[in-house]
Design a protein around this nucleic acid. Structure first.
Lengths: 371, 371
DNA sequence: ACAACTGTTGAATCATCTG
DNA sequence: GCAGATGATTCAACAGTTG
């Protein structure tokens, strides 16, 4: 599978191999204007402080590897600007780059991209269907990561397979937010001890969408932070050539073994997780946020024996009880449970109408403009 | 509704008004450490040179595109750093800021926030349920905007109403991606000609979630790019005080008219679910003093594997350990910590009941007869 | 075979009060 | 300011076992 391409007077490109070593040095050793796409998953510079425990007292396995440690923003910025410059030199004039990150680093990466002359095409949000919760209740669940897609320069003719992505998305235009699960289960590579081989392995579904959307078969895809080789694996499946750069020998070994087992157009492997569309859940709070019900407005029970007031956070308050629409309904009826959506009614033009009508309105809107 | 608060020796705060003029000058005229929350929707695009202060840069005569672009980023960065510095000066030590933007500006804003000493708490994706499609099929549908939520500095005790947001989301903790429709229909303000009064009016639902989640009633909320006043409108409804700054007279007029028509929700509706952390502390010893538990009585662990005896001083004694309910629980489980209130159970009518029930009884009494 | 249940885990900047 | 004590807090997916 390894092959070399010859560009006039330039050193050859080590296709479908993993280069050992520092990504900046390695990139600078490759010929300029030779790569179609770069996918980069650089260190996030997480800056974690102490240990974190789940409510059941188990400890969260932190990303505390040495490769993610930087002394300051200035050091991180310098590193970022250097690898981005080396990457840009490598790109063909119509080439493009994807970089993934979190709020810890993505703003610095994005600004550095712009400063380096890249032209941002989209930022894409990977919305994780199964993120790790916020165990201490101190912030919002960090449920997404951000990818930046940029061409080498303004006005470049980048590759964009509009129809292919539209097909992947059930016939409607692909949006800038992608809902995909994190990498778990059998896809997650393990070491000999049975522990995860890499702390931040990305799901193949993510790379599948990136490569289908922004490369063509035969294109050269480079990943300067190759890790355990998800980019290479998906590139190989899709009939693209890859070049990996990875300085950690352990990761390289896992990746090499993985890539040997990958076959082009393996139909089973190409199955991307398409989430089945269940009836979307609509939190009651959304009716309040959207102004369909006002805080302070009164709701009436099905049997008209009880009433309760809506609060700003989407809970109800009755005579001696406060809680969700379901909890308050159940309490007032002395029942073990209650479907608040059909139990509670609001006044509309003098008539009592179940609040479920409002939920149906929201769902109808969602169905009109799916995704 | 307009009121002024007096802070010792400092100029007063013009609450619930819209200040005309440049936001940096106006912010610098207000007293430092006086504002609880800032919500900012700064100009997104970089073609605002007329509006922005050009830096004194003599060498920038070249009509080179890359240079020109860099110059334009530099101008935007300078503007960003200036207003962020003015905003940070205004914030109380435990205050926080929200900034919204798109890929055109948000990376520069985010990096500037970090450089200025703000501490990012979350980036939040506003996922638009009804975005404008990409008509030319050249990129992904730009279907989201990004908000950054940051405290004034690392370690600050920012406001976060975890339980209220959880309620808004039907009892599941709120994530960093919010699905909300864009501002259309009756909510969208029109001018005399019937055209939209402001090009980027934000939906009230977005501000509702921001303000419920990160402010308390009576807090001061400042919006330095007030526009047609969505921040003020939602703040007023929710019983928060607002200060708007807007340089455009047309927008100010629309906002002033809008704000007159807004009414505050009643007090009951404004109460939101609170966490246990907000409840008064009850020492375990009080249960013994009050006779709810007798010295010598046996308590049983959650998993029924352990038991311990209550002592007269409100400590427990187990087989080989004595100490507080938490210490003994943690020791017996080999855990780093333990919440004794939910861990330990006592026998009541033959059933095992958590001792937290007794604490709840005491708290209920305290709420009835507060002193 | 299948349902029910248990246990584990994931790029995380995850306390606060008292003495 | 610091040390020590108190005590608040989780969602979805998957694997493996039990019934």
């Amino acid at each position: 599978m390894t092959k070399m391409t010859k560009i006039e007077g330039a050193p050859a490109l080590p296709l479908n191999t993993i280069m050992p070593g520092d990504c900046i040095e390695m990139m600078n050793a490759l010929p300029e204007n030779s790569v179609d796409l770069i996918f980069a998953d650089p260190p996030y510079n997480l800056q974690l402080r102490g240990d974190l425990h789940r409510p059941d007292n188990s400890q969260v396995d932190a990303v505390d590897d040495a490769w993610d440690q930087f002394d300051s923003f200035a050091v991180y910025d310098k590193f970022t600007r250097e690898w981005l410059a080396a990457a840009r030199r490598l790109l063909k004039p119509n080439g493009a780059i994807w970089v993934i990150g979190s709020y810890h680093n993505i703003f610095r990466v994005g600004a550095a991209l712009q400063d380096a002359g890249y032209w941002i095409l989209n930022d894409v949000v990977w919305r994780k269907s199964n993120p790790m919760p916020n165990f201490r209740g101190k912030r919002l669940t960090n449920a997404h990561e951000t990818m930046i897609w940029a061409s080498k320069s303004e006005g470049a003719k980048y590759t964009f397979n509009y129809e292919a992505l539209k097909s992947l998305n059930d016939g409607v235009q692909m949006r800038s937010d992608w809902v995909l699960p994190i990498c778990t289960g059998h896809e997650r590579l393990k070491d000999e001890a049975g522990d995860k081989a890499h702390p931040t392995q990305k799901p193949q579904s993510l790379l599948h969408r990136v490569l289908v959307g922004s490369t063509n078969p035969g294109d050269v895809v480079l990943d300067p932070f190759f890790g355990t080789g998800t980019t290479g694996a998906v590139a190989k499946m899709l009939g693209r050539d890859y070049i990996g750069i990875e300085r950690d020998e352990g990761y390289r070994k896992v990746a090499e073994k993985r890539l040997k087992g990958i076959r082009k157009f393996d139909r089973e492997a190409l199955q991307v997780s398409t989430s089945k569309r269940a009836e979307p859940r609509v939190p009651f709070g959304q009716l309040v946020e959207r102004g369909m019900l006002r805080p302070g407005e009164e709701l009436y029970s099905l049997n008209q024996r009880h009433k309760a007031k809506v609060r700003a956070d989407g809970t109800l308050i009755g005579d001696d009880i406060k809680g969700s629409i379901h909890q308050v309904g159940a309490h007032l009826e002395g029942a073990p449970s209650c479907n608040g959506w059909t139990y509670w009614h609001f006044k509309k033009d003098g008539k009592r109408v179940p609040i479920d009508l409002l939920r149906q309105q929201i769902r109808a809107e969602m169905a009109e403009r799916p995704n």
